Simulated scan of single mutants.
Amino acid sequence: MEISESKSGDAAVLSIAGRLDSSTAQQLESRLTMVLDGHPAVVLDLAGLDYVSSAGLRVLLKGAKQAKGRNAALLLAGLRPHVQEVFDISGFTAIFAIHPDRKAAAAALGGA
């Protein structure tokens, strides 16, 4: 899994590519915790995510709880159809604000 970071207004954007599973979940958990500490909003651009396992979903759920506790926003963007299906089946679409792409997520935050 590869994680790259950029900014969109006040929000941090983490672009995730590859597989989010038990062997990579800790990497995202550490990075997400660090980024949530320093930003009022985080967009996870998942357009490059090929696969997400239950371990990956757990990390995302933990991130959502951390964001809520910090009064921060955590938005997801760019889910591929097969990843979107995992979110639908697991009920995660009800937990997260999911946008078609990072531009739409930034617009939802009031940024460009």
Rank of each mutant, 00 (worst) to 15 (best):
K68S: 15
S6Q: 13
V35S: 07
D50Y: 06
A12M: 08
F96E: 00
A106L: 04
A55L: 04
R58G: 12
M34T: 15
G9K: 11
A12H: 14
I98R: 04
G9N: 08
L74C: 01
G91P: 01
A17R: 15
V35F: 02
A47T: 05
D37I: 07
S15G: 01
V83C: 00
E29R: 10
P40D: 01
G63M: 04
R102D: 05
S8F: 12
R19P: 07
M34P: 06
T33S: 05
D10A: 02
A55H: 12
K7T: 11
A72H: 14
G38Q: 04
L109V: 12
V52W: 01
A108Q: 12
T33C: 00
K7G: 11
Y51L: 00
A72F: 03
D21H: 11
Q26D: 14
Q27M: 15
L36P: 03
G111K: 07
L14A: 07
L49H: 04
A55W: 09
A105D: 02
P100Y: 11
L46F: 05
A112N: 13
R80N: 11
R80I: 04
A73T: 08
D21I: 12
A94P: 01
R70M: 01
T33A: 15
Q66K: 13
A77Q: 15
R58V: 04
V42G: 06
A105K: 03
M1Q: 07
G48D: 05
Q84W: 06
L20S: 01
A41Q: 05
N71Y: 09
S6A: 13
I3S: 09
N71L: 12
